[in-house]
Simulated scan of single mutants.
Amino acid sequence: MTRTRRRRWPWAVAALLALAMTATGIVIVPILTHVDQGDANQQVGDEEWPLAATATGDDGRTRQIEIIAVEPGGTVDTSALLPGDRFVVSGTGYDPARGIYVAICAIPDDPSLKPGPCLGGVPAQEAVEVEEGTIQFAPSNWINDAWAWRLFGARSYDDRDSGTFTAYLEVPPTADDKVDCRDVACALYTRNDHTAAGDRVQDVYIPLGFAG
Rank of each mutant, 00 (worst) to 15 (best):
G91E: 08
T78H: 00
V70Q: 11
V122K: 05
I68V: 15
A40S: 13
V130T: 10
G38T: 06
L82I: 02
V102I: 13
Q43T: 15
G91C: 09
L119V: 08
E132C: 01
A69S: 15
V29Q: 12
A146D: 14
E131Q: 15
A124P: 12
G74R: 08
I28H: 01
T62W: 06
S90P: 01
N41S: 12
R86V: 06
T92F: 02
E48Q: 15
D59V: 04
R63D: 04
P72K: 14
W142L: 08
A69K: 05
A23C: 09
A103E: 09
V76W: 00
G38P: 05
V29C: 03
A148I: 12
N141D: 15
D145R: 13
Q42L: 02
Q37N: 11
M21P: 03
D85C: 03
L119H: 02
E132R: 07
D46Y: 07
C118E: 08
V76Y: 00
F87M: 03
Q43Y: 11
Q136C: 05
C118P: 06
T24A: 15
A127P: 10
S156L: 06
A52I: 04
E71T: 14
V70T: 14
V130S: 07
P30W: 06
C118G: 10
W49T: 06
S140W: 03
G38Y: 06
T62R: 04
D46G: 07
I104K: 04
Q125T: 13
V44S: 12
G133E: 06
E126F: 13
I135H: 10
L16D: 01
F137Q: 03
S112P: 04
D46N: 12
A40P: 00
P123H: 04
A23P: 00
G60Y: 11
G121T: 09
V70Y: 11
A20V: 12
Y101H: 13
L119K: 00
A146C: 08
A138V: 01
R155A: 14
N41D: 13
G74I: 04
R150P: 02
V130N: 11
R98V: 14
A106T: 05
P96A: 05
E131N: 09
T92K: 15
A103P: 01
A52H: 05
G74D: 06
K114L: 04
E71P: 07
G93K: 00
A103I: 02
